[in-house]
């Protein structure tokens, strides 16, 4: 059984990361921005796992678990901030809350 080239896996990770980045830059709804960040983190983890599979090492999967823990903590705090923002400004548009004086 011949293995697929590692570059194809990395290319997939790069495409998913770019899609997440495009979503983050284009969308102004804060929920969609958080979703795009999830896509980007997932793509970064995919790159780690592909590289780990290429050399048959467990390190790639271990790094993915750290990314997973980081994503969980990030999304919990991020969604709490979204709730706070909606309670205070009654909007989910990130352009409406761009002034730092609040």
């Amino acid at each position: 059984m011949t293995a697929i080239p590692m570059e194809h896996g990395l290319l997939l990770a790069a495409v998913l990361f770019m899609l997440g980045l495009i979503g983050l830059l284009v969308r102004r709804n804060i929920i969609f921005m958080l979703l795009s960040i999830e896509v980007m983190l997932n793509a970064a983890g995919l790159a780690f796992v592909v590289a780990g599979a290429r050399w048959a090492q467990a390190e790639g999967q271990i790094m993915f678990m750290f990314i997973l823990a980081m994503a969980a903590a990030e999304v919990a705090v991020g969604l709490a901030l979204v709730l706070l923002m909606y309670r205070k400004f009654k909007t989910l548009d990130s352009d409406q809350v761009s002034r730092m004086r609040g």
């Binding site: 750290f66 823990a69 903590a73 919990a76 705090v77 709490a80 709730l83 706070l84």
Partner: peptide, 17 residues
Amino acid sequence: LAGMLLLAGLVGAFHLG
């Protein structure tokens, strides 16, 4: 460190929410 990060996320989300 990942465990501490998750705890910090929990406390932060509770405090903000």
